[in-house]
Simulated assay, not measured.
Amino acid sequence: MDNEHLTYRDYARYARQSAEEVARDCEAEAFRASGPGGQCVNTTDSAVRMTHLPTGITVTSRESRSQFRNRQLCLQKLRQEFVERAVPPKVRHATRPSRAARQRRLDHKHLRAQVKVQRRRIDE
């Protein structure tokens, strides 16, 4: 599936899948995390970057020193992203301005016109 053609219903379907089902559709990559953590961070490939192939969503986890735990966290992040994208868009209703709103707009236009008239040069 192409990311551009996915609807909120597609994301809802992915959100209902178990972590194992989501993991089957993912491509995981382990790498060395940067930042705090001492020498342990410099020597182990504990950070995980996971890409969900059907949607193209990529998440990264480097919170834990364990690669296994970071994989679990990536799956949690992916499922959370599916839940957020599964919200249907709000239905918009066309409205018309009220009579009072139209009158306020015309009154404001009249006031601006009067201000501009006051700026003109006075011819003698």
Rank of each mutant, 00 (worst) to 15 (best):
L78I: 04
T51A: 01
S46Q: 10
Q80Y: 05
R62M: 14
L73F: 10
T55W: 00
I57S: 06
R62Y: 15
F68S: 14
K90E: 11
S64R: 10
H52L: 07
T58Y: 02
V83S: 06
Q67G: 11
S64K: 12
R65D: 12
V87K: 09
Q72D: 14
A86D: 01
S61I: 09
K77E: 10
C74L: 09
T60N: 14
E63D: 15
V91E: 08
C74I: 06
P54L: 09
F68W: 12
T58C: 05
L78K: 04
C74K: 00
K77W: 03
E63I: 05
L75V: 11
I57K: 01
R79I: 15
T60I: 15
L75E: 03
Q72M: 14
N70S: 13
P54S: 03
A86I: 01
R79F: 00
E81I: 06
E81W: 08
F82P: 12
R62S: 15
Q76F: 06
G56Q: 05
E84W: 06
R69P: 11
E84D: 15
E81R: 14
R71Y: 05
P54G: 06
A86P: 07
T55C: 11
P88Q: 03
F68D: 13
V87S: 09
R65I: 12
L53C: 06
R49V: 06
T51G: 02
V48W: 05
Q72G: 15
R71S: 09
R79N: 11
E63G: 15
Q76Y: 01
S66A: 11
R62N: 14
Q76V: 11
N70E: 13
T60P: 03
I57E: 08
R62P: 04
G56V: 04
M50H: 02
R85W: 00
T51M: 06
T58H: 07
S64F: 11
R49I: 03
K90V: 06
S64T: 04
E63K: 14
T55R: 01
V48K: 09
V48L: 08
T51Q: 03
T51F: 03
P89I: 01
Q72A: 11
C74D: 07
K77N: 10
R49E: 09
Q80L: 12
R79E: 09
F82E: 07
I57C: 01
R49P: 06
R85D: 01
R69A: 14
A86F: 00
F82K: 04
Q67P: 12
V83A: 12
E81D: 14
T55P: 03
R65V: 02
C74G: 14
M50N: 05
H52F: 01
I57W: 02
S61K: 08
L75Y: 13
A86V: 00
N70D: 13
V91R: 03
V87Y: 01
Q76H: 12
R79L: 13
M50D: 06
E81M: 07
P89V: 04
S66F: 10
S66K: 13
T58N: 08
A86G: 03
F82A: 00
P88H: 05
T55Q: 05
L53E: 02
T51W: 03
S66C: 14
T58P: 02
H52K: 00
